[in-house]
Simulated scan of single mutants.
Amino acid sequence: MHYEGKIYRPWMEAESLLIQTTLGCSNNQCTFCTMFDDKRFKVRELEDIFLDIVEARQRYRHVESIFLVDGNVMAIRTEKLIAILDQIKVTFPEIKNISLYSGFNDFRRKSITELKEIRSAGLSMAYSGLESGDPIVLERIKKRMTREHAIEGMEMAREANIKVLASVIFGLGGKERSHEHAVNTTSLINIMKPDAIAPMALAIQPGSELEREMQRGEFTLPTPLQILEEEKYLLENLEDFDCYYWGDHGNNISPMRGSFPSSRLPFLERINENIAHNPITQENVIQTFAW
């Protein structure tokens, strides 16, 4: 099997087989991210992908979950993506889950018919970076996505019955826009109602544009207390729709995960306990680790 450059997958996919289908990310301008700065976006040749799938079958006797890397695999032409999904199902008849990264704009660039065909071909879950619901933050981080884009993309995915996990980043508004970031992100999630939410604390990636902004004094890291307060606001104000809360990223101050809204009260108890007693809240700058 062949992989090019740095390879990333969501922490929920730790047990999944990884098949590289694209190289890099078609946006690759987000100021906080360096995941794919070592390569230009490209869709791998179909025959090369198929060879990797066949080789994976030779190596692994039983595979139930596959994650397609790199970034926004949903950007692949529909017929090619369906061919990949079909080949996976033929090669791994025991497969139960096939997931990938998709920007919300990638949903918008396809028709509902195309998305339904992709779902019928076997796609189980799309991991989509929402990051923030604050218009100013979205513009600053060069996400090339608006609140309206995210809402439309989510609606299209839901109509096609594609499950969506939306990731958000606590602290992305910095010290200055911590409250606005929390309020606007929560309000957007309430409109979108994704199937799962994956919140994580901001980590400054070495070599990122955001790191340079911080060094120039244009971005100030939030405090650990602000991070906890952002998560508290989210938990308090999420509406009662069913979703899974993947709040156990390694950088989170209060890691926890479980079904929502049934976990709201125990999660809030944990957050409040950290706010009241965790000595980290006395620090001036959040300390997190690069991905």
Rank of each mutant, 00 (worst) to 15 (best):
D37K: 15
E114Q: 15
R177C: 00
P266Y: 08
N284R: 10
D37V: 14
W11K: 11
A157S: 12
A126C: 15
E45I: 01
N284H: 09
E229I: 04
N161Y: 13
F289T: 15
W11L: 11
C30T: 07
C30P: 06
I136H: 01
N237Q: 06
L46G: 09
F170V: 01
P224N: 04
V69F: 06
I118T: 04
C33L: 12
C30W: 05
A182H: 02
S263D: 01
I271E: 03
N272S: 08
L234V: 10
C243H: 15
K6F: 05
M156E: 10
M200F: 07
G250V: 13
G174A: 05
M1L: 04
I197H: 00
A290L: 02
A157E: 10
I88Y: 00
T91N: 00
D248Y: 06
R59D: 11
V63W: 08
I275K: 04
Y60L: 10
T223D: 12
L23K: 12
F170C: 00
M192E: 07
E269R: 13
Q205V: 13
R144I: 04
I227G: 08
I227C: 07
Q226N: 04
T146I: 10
K193V: 02
M12S: 13
T186L: 02
K163S: 14
L130T: 10
E211L: 09
K42S: 14
T186I: 03
